[in-house]
Write a protein that binds this DNA or RNA. Sequence first.
DNA 1: AAACTTAATTAACAGTGTTAAGTTTACAAA
DNA 2: TTTGTAAACTTAACACTGTTAATTAAGTTT
Lengths: 205, 205
Amino acid sequence: MGIVARKEQQKKEIRQLILDNSMQLFVEEGFSHVSMRKIAERIQYSPTTLYLYFKDKNEILFHCCESGFEKMLVANISLSLINHPIDRLHQMGKNYLQFGLENPEFYDLMFIQDAPMNRLNEMGEGWSSGDQALEALKMIIQDGMDQGLIVPAKVETVAMAVWSMVHGLVSLAIRKRLDKLVCPADMEQTMHDSLDWLLQTLKKA
Amino acid sequence: MGIVARKEQQKKEIRQLILDNSMQLFVEEGFSHVSMRKIAERIQYSPTTLYLYFKDKNEILFHCCESGFEKMLVANISLSLINHPIDRLHQMGKNYLQFGLENPEFYDLMFIQDAPMNRLNEMGEGWSSGDQALEALKMIIQDGMDQGLIVPAKVETVAMAVWSMVHGLVSLAIRKRLDKLVCPADMEQTMHDSLDWLLQTLKKA
DNA sequence: AAACTTAATTAACAGTGTTAAGTTTACAAA
DNA sequence: TTTGTAAACTTAACACTGTTAATTAAGTTT
């Protein structure tokens, strides 16, 4: 079955070719300006060929999200070196802000657009990388509470609060809603200040 | 100049007719499914007529946002009855969550989509209602610090943190990113719990 | 070489925002 | 009352969009 195997290999390679070029286009031109035809032109295929490898555009977006989550996971590997729960949470938050500001197009796809979610809800499975990050967050918070460092509460409640705040910061910044609050030059610093403030107040007195 | 005045009045009425029907369509069918042609059909005009009253679609969205902010402002009038800064901030947050969950299409337009922002950045002025709400937030926080009820910090930093958290909650909920964290039935309650938790930890010990 | 399978394409549909040119309507001056 | 003109509105069209059905080209098997 050498031939069959090779064919499947080729199919996978083209799938990856489509995904790679889609992601490049998202980063270069912004999510909303990328069309199926543009992706096709870039890889020198007919637009309809894309539909032989992906059900629709949402499915392509969905898989781009997956790479985004993996990218994020890589940025978080250094976390394992930090033992103190608060410091660890702090670094996780800083990584989150940094990822969002450095990869706004990816962030848009992963957390703001609802197109990829539609695809996800049709499938049974979710994002393993995304779930992994969420579990890590919950574990850190649980740790912090167990060690008496964080004011006790339901772990889901606190996890939701922390995630919502960093997501709020990044998404408001990306969508230019914070420009009236602070000037663009001070934006990144003030965002980190807000995170610092939360972590400060979150600490048990 | 009675005739000229009447003509201008008619022009304003048609402008408002366009805006009213646009908003109805946004609420009914969702932002992304509303086209210029659909709006035009609804008011029995040709699609191109809309361009005689608005520069482009973004300008229509922009003005729909304005009404959204006024809607929000109305929901906040009861705030003036609350004197204690923390309670006031708490109620403001609850109103915000409620508004977002009850008017997801409006919220989307006001805080998530970037289309209306493009229009805004071309103009000199911003949203007076939006700015007003932001100023109110800053004032409450400043009050709370002055009265020694909130851990002191730069007011912009805390305002950003608080707004980001409630926005994060609403936008993640709207975009169905919180479904892995809590089941939909408990969503609203947990969101309010998160807000409560923040307000609790924000209080000076 | 003929039959069959797979991969890729062309043509088309129904929709989008938007512009330029043409038409109708309404009102002022003659 | 008729004519001229300016405003209001529409028709036709452009350049796109995602997506499907029918068709051709290529490769494999018999």
